[in-house]
Structure formats: C-alpha cells, structure tokens
Amino acid sequence: MSKILVLGRTMDMGGTEVAMAALLQKLVEKKEDVTLLLVEKRGVLLERIPKEVEVRQMIWNKKPHPALERIVGKRETPAERSFYARGMGVFLMRVVYGKKRYGKLYERILECVEPETKQYDLVFDFFGFGAFTTAFGARKTNARKKAVWFHGENLWWLFRTRDFIPEYDKIYCVSEPVRKQVIARFPELADRTEVLLNFIDIKQVQRRSEEPLSDPQYTGELKFLTVGRASEEKGYDIAVQITAELKKRGLCFKWFIIGDGRDLNKLRTMAKEYQVEQEIIFLGMRENPAPYVKSCDLYLQPSRHEGYPITIVEARSLQKVIIASDIPSMREQIRDGENGYLCPLDVMQFADKIQKVLADQEGRDAVRKKLREEPIDFSAGYAQIEAFAKK
C-alpha cells in the first residue's frame, strides 16, 4: 500500500474534476492510502469521492491579501469575491509580476500556506493548468516521487508554473497531442513525459444515464447537446452562429448546452443578439449530465482545443452519434464516418455536416452499431502508475 497525496483546486463540475474523482476511485480499488488536498473544499463532485479518501483543504498560516487567495482559486468569503480582490489580483498578475516573474508571485503565496508535513510515497498534482497546486506540490510536499498532469493542448498558461514543473519526476499528458506540445516546450524533460489517459468509469456513466430525467427546459423533438464549461476553448460562440445558420435554413431543433463558466452570461447575450435564444439554450450546471446525453439526438462538440475530452468518451459509451471539431485530440477518439463525425470548426461547414448526418439514417445506424461493438477500457493505464511508483 502506497501513501498518495492528490492535489486539486475544487470539486466543481468539470471534465478534469470528473477524471480526478475516477482516479481516486481507482486508487481506492487498488487499496492505496489516499489523501485529497484541495485549495478550497467545495463542489458538487465531492459526493463522488470514495469515503476511504481523506479530503482536506489547504491551510493558510497567515492571512494573505484577498487578492492572493483569489489568485489561487479561493472564493469562500465576500472579501475574496469582491471587485477589489479581482482588480488587485489582475494588477498583481499582469503589472507587478507579469509572465516573466509569475513564479515569484506563486513563491510569495507559498509563504502564506502551511506545508504538508506528512511523508508520502507519491504526490500527484492532478489539476495542472498552471494552477497554484503545481507550485504547492513542488515546494510544500514531501514524497519519494512526484507527478504532474497536463490536460490540454493549449499551454498558454505555462508561464505560471514553468519554474516548478522540472521539480516533478513524471509529467503525465492525457493525450498524444498534449505530449507533443509539452515536449516542444520542455525538450529536456522528454524522458519523463508520457501519455496516461484519464480513468473513466464507463459502467458508472451508464448507470447514471438511467437516472430519471425531469427537466422542463429539456424538451423538443430534435435535441442536440453539448456538455462543458462555458469558456473560449469550447467554441460556444461558434455554436451560437451555427444555430443561427441552421435556423435560417429552416431546421426545427433545440441545442442544449450544459455547464457553468465565466462566459455563460456573455453567451446568453450573444444568443439574444443572434435571435436564437429559443434554439440554443444554456442550461447552466447539471449535477448529472448523463441522462441528458442518453436522450439527445446528436451530441455536438465544437471545441477549439481539448486534451482528451471526457464528454466524448461518455457520449461514445452511450452510443450517441457525435459531430466534433476536427482537432488532434478528437481524432484520437473519432474516426470520421466510422464511429462518429469530424468537421472543421467553420460555421457553414458545421451546419452542412449536421444536416448531412441528419439526412443519413443508414449512416447514423452504422455509427451506433460500431460504438456498441467498440470496447472502451482504461484499466491498463494503472500499470503505468505502478511502474512509476516502483522505479
């Protein structure tokens, strides 16, 4: 049995957090002694954490400026949520420190946080994404070995944690396109960088899809669905434009989008400006999206970039016909015309693809048949973690 510390920001609904819950479940199944340390202990996915996992929140040894707490992801108090904290946080990040000295900002915050005094066999910074957890794992934990996860192809945030990543013994990338991007930035770390697919409990997804669905907003004879945070990389602004184009062509449908995020209100406003607020409906967060996925007619994913999109895995496991943007991470799962459809992220071409797929009943049936026959199994990935632990 290994003592393992897993680091995360929160357990709010999101693909990374869903994958983290699945990893925790796998570690518990393997009889590991697991602790989850969060920047802030909150989120609807806390209930998915196995009871055997000790869940704690980072402790501040002295009260920092609210702006510093906000930078690392804390939102507990009105002071941390205030306009002043947001403004000061932006000022510190962009003006005082900037991209070249961002590591120094994290070092300043590290001075305010209690170290993790226990000795662990392994420390996993699962969240990654340039978050404070990477700095904390590197400098404030004690372990025989440490690993950090990279979840996305777009590494715009890398300047935040560039100084800390070399202190990790292993860099896990959730897809081959992500691995290539990491090696391009850190060629000297290529020998410690490898692909490790996220653990996804397919049986749990299928069980959760059977739960009753009672949502008065989720109606219509032809339903499209997308699940994911309302942020730029998901391409929801393009989705609004695709919706407007399909409406202009006379198609009667509703496109539902599940997920919270910083762009949610802006996207709802955009839908009104395009006069499609009745056709594209931003539902916000739903604790269990699986029944929605199960009952949709098409699952659409117009992302600009991804890591290894878990929502695509879940839609595949429920044998849904998928149309996704033709980007490297989607090609790892979807073979165009065989087990789903890929399309350039262009308004006219995406609208054309949707209409073409809807008109081809035989093609959709063939895709569903292929998905039923196609195994989805992530169990072999744990051998990589075991090999890392034994070295």
Rank of each mutant, 00 (worst) to 15 (best):
Q333V: 03
N265K: 15
N339G: 04
S2H: 15
S214G: 12
I310M: 00
E76M: 15
I4K: 06
S295T: 15
I238F: 15
W60S: 10
F136P: 03
A147H: 06
R108E: 11
K356N: 10
G15E: 10
Y120M: 03
D237S: 12
Q119C: 14
Q278T: 11
L38C: 04
L45Y: 00
R48H: 15
E245V: 05
K203N: 13
I322L: 01
F159K: 07
A67I: 01
D260G: 14
V72I: 05
F253E: 03
E277R: 04
V34F: 09
E52T: 11
I258R: 02
L196Y: 10
Q361V: 14
E362I: 13
K31L: 01
V227K: 02
Q361M: 12
S379L: 08
M330Y: 09
T133S: 08
E362P: 12
E52R: 12
A79T: 08
F127A: 12
Q241S: 09
I59M: 09
K234C: 00
D260S: 14
R268G: 13
E210A: 10
V34G: 07
A190R: 11
M1D: 09
T161Q: 02
E76P: 15
H305I: 09
V367G: 04
V18L: 11
W156Q: 11
V18S: 11
F91I: 11
L110G: 06
A135I: 00
R192P: 06
V95Y: 09
V174C: 00
M20F: 12
V178Y: 04
W60D: 09
R286P: 08
V18F: 11
C252L: 12
F159C: 02
L225T: 08
K180I: 05
E233H: 12
D191S: 15
P115C: 10
G381L: 08
L110I: 04
L264Q: 14
G220A: 01
V34D: 08
K30Y: 10
E29N: 11
L24P: 00
Q319H: 14
I334N: 06
N339K: 03
R304F: 03
C343G: 01
D215V: 02
F132N: 05
I200M: 10
A79H: 10
L342M: 02
E194S: 01
V44K: 15
P66K: 07
L345V: 03
D163Y: 04
G103E: 01
L110A: 00
P216N: 02
P309D: 04
Y341H: 06
R229N: 10
M11H: 07
V34Q: 08
R372S: 13
R368D: 01
E374P: 02
A383Q: 14
K41S: 04
K356M: 11
A85C: 03
F159D: 07
E194H: 03
M88T: 14
C296D: 00
Q217P: 13
K180L: 08
F388N: 04
A85I: 05
F129K: 14
I71Q: 02
G128I: 00
S379M: 07
L37Q: 00
D336E: 07
I202R: 08
F388T: 07
I310E: 00
